[in-house]
Computed example of a mutant assay.
Amino acid sequence: MHRREAGVTVPWRALRWPLAMLAAAVLVCGTFLVVLAAGADGDDGPAVPDTASADAGFARDMVVHHQQAVEMSLIVRDRTDDEDVRRLAYDIVNTQANQRGMLLGWLDQWELPASSGGPPMAWMGHEMPFEARDGALMPGMATDTQIRRLRAAGGEEAEVLYLRLMTAHHRGGVQMSQMAEPVVETRVVRRLAGTTLRGQQSEIELMRDMLEERGGIVKP
């Protein structure tokens, strides 16, 4: 597919990455502006969430969830020379490492521990239809076996496996963010949940196209 600009035919693939990177930058910058604005606005729910609150629980779980996305992205960066996959991995590392730092910063500001010692997803207040297995603690997380497979793969095999695993990972992040938005009480956490939801939905669409270019979407 091509797009014509100023008398020049431009491949759509060449335009896709600048647009995706611009969207990611807007979402990340918007999140930081929300944090600054929330600090100046008193209408932000409880001043300090309780350690058993949905805000604290969601923050703790997303710290773990984001960390695995960063780990997988760093793995594939060294397993392929494909510039599209490496660029996606770089964007995910930057976005999710930044958000992880924000979440840990909020927990520290609230003087709450970074881990509760309880089961993941307990902040929902009801049983989560998800069974942790083989290191996959939350929806969408890759198992330890899948991570080992990614470390052992190379080239296009690593690219396809990474895209499949990260698509599932993002879908889990979207699910968690959808569950958090209506129950968290602080504005910064609610807005971060919304930012995560929109950003990861956009990357899921991008990864779908990348997988189709490499032979189609197949569950990991």
Rank of each mutant, 00 (worst) to 15 (best):
Arg3Leu: 02
Ala6Cys: 01
Ala6Arg: 15
Ala6Asp: 10
Ala6Ser: 08
Gly7Ile: 05
Val8Asp: 00
Thr9Ala: 09
Trp12Leu: 14
Trp12Lys: 06
Arg13Glu: 09
Leu15Ala: 10
Arg16Gln: 13
Trp17Phe: 09
Trp17Ile: 14
Pro18Val: 15
Met21Gln: 14
Met21Ala: 06
Val26Ile: 11
Val26Gly: 06
Cys29Asn: 10
Cys29Pro: 04
Gly30Ser: 14
Gly30Trp: 00
Thr31Met: 10
Phe32Leu: 15
Leu33His: 05
Val35Trp: 07
Gly39Ile: 05
Gly39Asn: 12
Ala40Ser: 06
Asp41Lys: 14
Asp44Phe: 14
Gly45Met: 12
Ala47Gln: 12
Ala47Phe: 12
Thr51His: 11
Ala54Cys: 08
Ala56Thr: 10
Gly57Trp: 07
Gly57Cys: 09
Ala69Gln: 10
Met72His: 06
Leu74Gly: 08
Val76Phe: 11
Val76Pro: 04
Asp78Pro: 02
Arg86Cys: 13
Leu88Gly: 07
Ile92Gln: 13
Asn94Lys: 12
Thr95Gln: 13
Gln96Trp: 01
Ala97Lys: 15
Ala97Ser: 12
Arg100Glu: 07
Gly101Phe: 02
Gly101Ala: 04
Trp106Pro: 12
Trp106Met: 07
Leu107Tyr: 03
Leu107Ala: 08
Asp108Trp: 15
Ser115Glu: 09
Ser115Phe: 05
Gly117Asp: 07
Gly117Arg: 14
Pro119Ala: 10
Met121Gln: 10
Ala122Gln: 13
Trp123Thr: 06
Gly125Phe: 07
Gly125Pro: 13
His126Ala: 02
Glu127Leu: 09
Pro129Ser: 04
Ala132Glu: 06
Asp134Ser: 06
Leu137Trp: 06
Pro139Val: 04
Gly140Trp: 04
Asp144Ile: 03
Thr145Lys: 15
Gln146Val: 01
Arg151Ser: 00
Ala152Leu: 10
Gly155Pro: 04
Glu157Asp: 13
Glu159His: 11
Tyr162Gln: 03
Arg164Gln: 12
Met166Trp: 01
Met166Asp: 02
Arg171Glu: 11
Arg171Ile: 05
Gly173Cys: 03
Gly173Met: 04
Gln175Pro: 01
Gln175Lys: 10
Gln175Glu: 10
Gln178Thr: 11
Val183Gln: 12
Val188Cys: 06
Arg190Lys: 15
Arg190Ile: 01
Leu192Asn: 11
Ala193Glu: 03
Thr196Ala: 08
Leu197Ser: 09
Arg198Asp: 03
Gln200Val: 01
Gln201Phe: 05
Ser202Ile: 09
Ile204Ala: 08
Glu205Lys: 12
Met210Ile: 07
Leu211His: 02
Glu212Cys: 03
Glu213Asp: 15
Gly216Lys: 02
Gly216Gln: 01
Pro220Lys: 07
Pro220Ile: 00
